[in-house]
Amino acid sequence: MKHLVRVENLKKIFKIRNQGRTSTIVAVDDVSFFIKKGETLGLIGESGSGKTTVGRMIVRLLEPSEGRIEFDSRDITHLKERELKPFRNRFQIVFQDPYSSLNPRMTVFQILSRPLSVFGVENDRRKQKERVLKALYDVGLHDEHLNRYPHEFSGGQRQRISIARALISEPEFVVLDEPTSALDVSVQAQILNLLKYLKSEHNLTYLFISHDLGVIHYMCDRVMVMYLGEIVESASTEELFESPIHPYTRFLMRAIPDPDPEVSTKELEISYTERGSQVSHSDSGCKFFPRCDRAIKRCEGEHPELVEILPEHYVRCHNPHL
């Protein structure tokens, strides 16, 4: 199958100025992957893993420090905003916070018709209105919502508006950056099912970013696990959840409480003291070394590479759990 998105050796370094001193943080460190047309690739990690930064670089809201991004076989890494314009309506992004991601001073119609005007897809007002209405119906909203302002909607409805805004210009690829983590579970399920429906309806390709293993499991075909800026494991969803190999992935799976009390009560035997408080700054070793329960001598001094341990199953670990 064709690769719609290809990312090679992507790196993002943030400079932080603190009282005159500049320090640097490597948020994304040498990340490479591809996304096949029509699939949903999951990106999972905790805060500080760099997963959000990866998403923003792909849709060019953040400038990569190093590396290369290809969209539909074209290098878009360093395109200027003007050169990027023909691509902008082909990839879109949905943000996490449904409260801050909509302009509070615009009505739903204005929010949804802007992409049409900007991309020059449709400039006639009457036809714009038709398309906006169609997009609204698509996400489960109605005519009466057209002239309301964002603050008149609930979180779930706002997220529907965000999704409609992303999809109205008919993109091929959408980055979903924790689209449901600010929502209640009952509403989350609505949005997840909506996203699934829209994907099949519009032949979309998704990059689904989340910290929630359950959500990733439900939505994705393939999953990458990120830890401190690196991909530590990547496999098909089925394989990853059935036989996780990297100690971090296994740790995550144990840490997430399941709503079934019989499953959950047994599993809460996580180390009680905090060992991961001091993040190792030695560049040479494995980044997960300070928290790892399977660490061996080699892990401290030698940084592991991402290796294809099983077919299509990549792991970055010296002492993988096989």
């Binding site: 979180g155 399920a189 099912n193 439900y218």
Partner: peptide, 16 residues
């Protein structure tokens, strides 16, 4: 609730 241990169709509660 989407679960990491088993996949099945999620049934949502309509409305908010």
């Amino acid at each position: 609730i989407p679960r990491s241990r088993k996949v099945r169709e999620l049934r949502s509660i309509p409305g908010s």
